[in-house]
C-alpha cells in the first residue's frame, strides 16, 4: 500500500532522514519508533504529502504522492478539534471538505463505538483530553481511509487513558484492517499494536532495525509474551 524507496529529506541544512526504504502492506500496522529528533514525524509528513522528499520516491496505492490524498487520513499528537464545532460537526469536517455527502449516520455510529454516544452536541472544551482524542480518532475514520497516519496520537494523554485508547485502536484495526503508520516513542504501544516495528536511529534518521511482532491478537498490555519484544526493542533503542 505504501512504498518508500531511497527517501531522504533535509530542511534548513538539517539532514532529517536518509535513505529510507519501507514497504507497508494493505492491512499492515507498522509502528515507527525512535528517540525524539530522529525524523519520525518528518517521515509521516512525507507520506501524508505535507512535505516533499528531497530525494527518493513515495508511492501510495501505486501512485506517487505529490499532495495530500483523500484516502489517507492523518491523526496528530494533539486532538486538533475546532473549538467552535460540536463533537458531531468536528467528526464530519473531513466529509465537508472532501465533498463526500451526508455521513451523519456513520458519524453517530463511530461516536457510539468510541463511547461518545450522547456527547454529539457538546463542544470540545467540555470534554476531557482522552475524549477529545477519541473524537479525533472518529474524525480520521469518517472518510473510510485506506491509509491511516498517526503521529504520536496518545503521547499527550495520561497513562490510563493512553492504555484505553491503544486498546481501542487495536479493536478498530482488528474490525477493519488498514495500512497504518503509527509514530510513537512508547515501546509498549508499539508492541501492543504493530505487526512490524521500525526502529529509527537519529541524525540523520535511518532505519536501524525492523522487528516483526508475531504475536496473536488481541494483545493486552502487560501480557508476558509482549515483554520479550519490549526488551529487544529497548536494547535496539540504546544502540540506535
Amino acid at each position: 500500500m505504501i512504498t518508500l524507496s531511497g527517501v531522504s529529506h533535509s530542511f534548513g541544512g538539517v539532514h532529517a532522514l536518509d535513505g529510507i526504504d519501507l514497504e507497508v502492506g494493505e492491512h499492515e500496522f507498522v509502528a515507527v519508533i525512535g528517540r525524539s529528533g530522529c525524523g519520525k514525524s518528518t517521515l509521516l509528513r512525507l507520506v501524508a504529502g505535507l512535505l516533499t522528499p528531497s530525494r527518493g520516491r513515495i508511492l501510495v496505492a501505486g501512485s506517487p504522492v505529490t499532495r495530500p490524498r483523500r484516502d489517507v487520513s492523518v491523526m496528530f499528537q494533539r486532538p486538533a478539534l475546532l473549538p467552535w464545532r460540536t463533537v458531531l460537526a468536528n467528526v464530519l469536517l473531513p466529509t465537508e471538505i472532501l465533498g463526500l455527502g451526508d455521513h451523519r449516520d456513520r458519524a453517530h455510529e463511530l461516536l457510539e463505538l468510541a463511547g461518545l454516544g450522547g456527547f454529539e452536541k457538546r463542544l470540545p472544551h467540555e470534554l476531557s483530553g482522552g475524549m477529545q482524542q477519541r473524537v479525533s480518532l472518529c474524525r480520521s475514520l469518517i472518510q473510510s481511509p485506506q491509509v491511516m497516519l498517526m503521529d504520536e496520537p496518545f503521547s499527550a494523554l495520561d497513562a490510563i487513558t493512553r492504555t484505553e485508547l491503544s486498546e481501542e485502536l487495536q479493536r478498530v484495526q482488528l474490525a477493519r484492517p488498514r495500512a497504518v503508520v503509527f509514530v510513537t516513542h512508547s515501546i509498549d504501544e508499539a508492541v501492543l499494536l504493530a505487526d512490524r516495528i521500525v526502529v529509527l536511529s537519529p541524525r540523520p534518521g535511518r532505519i536501524h532495525r525492523v522487528v516483526e511482532v508475531d504475536l496473536p491478537r488481541p494483545r493486552a498490555l502487560g501480557q508476558v509474551e509482549l515483554d520479550e519484544v519490549s526488551r529487544e526493542l529497548r536494547g535496539l533503542l540504546v544502540t540506535a
Binding site: 499532495r67 492523518v74 496528530f76 475546532l82 471538505i97
Partner: peptide, 29 residues
C-alpha cells in the same frame, strides 16, 4: 490560527476558501 489546525486542513487537501471560511475566520471571531 494554530499550526496544528492549519496542518489538519492541509492534510485534507482543503482549498484556500475552505481554509479561510471553515477555519481562519472562525478562529479569528
Amino acid at each position: 490560527t494554530p499550526s496544528e489546525l492549519v496542518e489538519l486542513f492541509r492534510s485534507l487537501d482543503a482549498t484556500r476558501t475552505h481554509e479561510f471560511f471553515k477555519l481562519r475566520l472562525w478562529h479569528a471571531l
